[in-house]
Design a protein around this nucleic acid. Sequence first.
DNA 1: GAATAAAAACCGTCCAGGTAGTATAGTGAA
DNA 2: TTCACTATACTACCTGGACGGTTTTTATTC
Lengths: 178, 178
Amino acid sequence: MARATRKIEILHAASKIVSERGIFNLTLEATAIEAGVSKGGLLYHFPSKEALVKGMVDHLAENYRVKIATSVAESSKEKGKWIRSYADVTFKNTYPNKEMHAGLLAAKAVNSDLLDPIRDLYNEWQTEIENDGIDPVKATIIRLATDGIWLSELFDIHRLSEERKEEVYVKLKKWIDE
Amino acid sequence: MARATRKIEILHAASKIVSERGIFNLTLEATAIEAGVSKGGLLYHFPSKEALVKGMVDHLAENYRVKIATSVAESSKEKGKWIRSYADVTFKNTYPNKEMHAGLLAAKAVNSDLLDPIRDLYNEWQTEIENDGIDPVKATIIRLATDGIWLSELFDIHRLSEERKEEVYVKLKKWIDE
DNA sequence: GAATAAAAACCGTCCAGGTAGTATAGTGAA
DNA sequence: TTCACTATACTACCTGGACGGTTTTTATTC
């Protein structure tokens, strides 16, 4: 193998294009150029545009899953491990979010079914969150609030100031422990 | 004027296409057919695709603004009018949400600047919500949770059951009054 | 360790099909 | 006469994907 990372470089390139130039500019040729590969080379790894977008979603779903799982595993608390990890990862990590945004938008545009891995992920988490020792309704509200941050970043809408975001984070965490 | 509603019919048609068939199927011709208008007729009202999408966003922003404003005006409470209205409208109305989804996705795809009317709207609301007599951090969390519902509906991801959604709604409302 | 074979990882061009936007001629209603 | 369209034709452009090469890696044998 030339580089085990070639496929992943292509996925990053695709995400970058979606983030910076929008979905309509996610063409095979543009992706190939951004990734520094020929169009034929790209098609070798991803035989269609849909396959490319599927690759994006699958990759980021897996990434996110590992991220949360690691955080849960490292937690020393007994109750609310999952919701705490979910909030931590989403509030504190900027990296996977941007790729997540691009992947979500691309999948929604190309073929909604491609979102299935994300759906599975969220369903799993919801189950864990609801059975983690704290009031499920409270836990759900915290999850929703965390998702709200997401929405605002996804569309660059009513972005909170860093201070307010931090205050929200602190209050949510405190609420988990109550 | 033949019908004052022609332009709006076209906007509904465009939203419908985005919702049902995705952004890539929002072509001028498809929109014309869906609206029962000729392509020339469509271009008479919206001289370009971007103008069409701008029309979608402007229209729904205005709609949403009126909806919230009406709810606020009807409120008999003294404190937390805005956050209460925001939660009510978003939780209880399915109509404007779907159009909102389509508009957001279309604008994000075509040209992010088209989202500006929505940004303005959200900034206004955030200001109102933070100065409505209740703890601004609490109010922000409630707004974020409400937006979280949105995100889940937008991508059809981890949709809550109606019961859980209702429980969340009830708990949030109770929290406002605390 | 050199030679060789085969598989993997690419490259670059071509084309059919689709799309935004233009143009133009015409129609019915107010 | 103007407004609010209809209907059709046309163009210039772009894109996905097919296809037929070519180079680089890896595995195998001598």
